[in-house]
Design a protein around this nucleic acid. Sequence first.
DNA 1: GCCAACGTTGGC
DNA 2: GCCAACGTTGGC
Length: 136
Amino acid sequence: MTAHWLVKSEPNTYSYADLERDGRTVWDGVRNNAAALHLKAMAAGDEVLFYHSQEGLAVVGVAKVVRTAFPDASDPAGRFVAVELAPVRALKRPVTLSEMKAEPALADMVMLRQSRLSVSPVSDDQWKALLKMAGG
DNA sequence: GCCAACGTTGGC
DNA sequence: GCCAACGTTGGC
């Protein structure tokens, strides 16, 4: 059983379309211990919801972990880690933050509870509910 | 642009 | 080791 996650990205900086264009990308720059713990817990093949923050405010696609945690070369102190992600598919229909907030099945989602956390776990039930909202 | 949440830093 | 000040994220 693979685990599921959610990552945030500002589409102005790096959008899901950018990930599709690149084929895969190094997910670095995370500078938060809780988020780093989640990165370290990711296994190859784990699927990841790709959320657009600031602009869009919606989950727009699914990505997968293609390389597990390794030292983040962009962190001079060497404390933080990065992973590599590849695109799986864009959602048929983006699921907006307001829809997520209104969905009881997602009430306990970590990303809703801790809005600043850039990498967070998603339970199996939450994963299924969200994909259903996205049109299957 | 504002502000709430929250992590980090630094003085004591 | 406490806690006030400060910085950053991200929704509104």
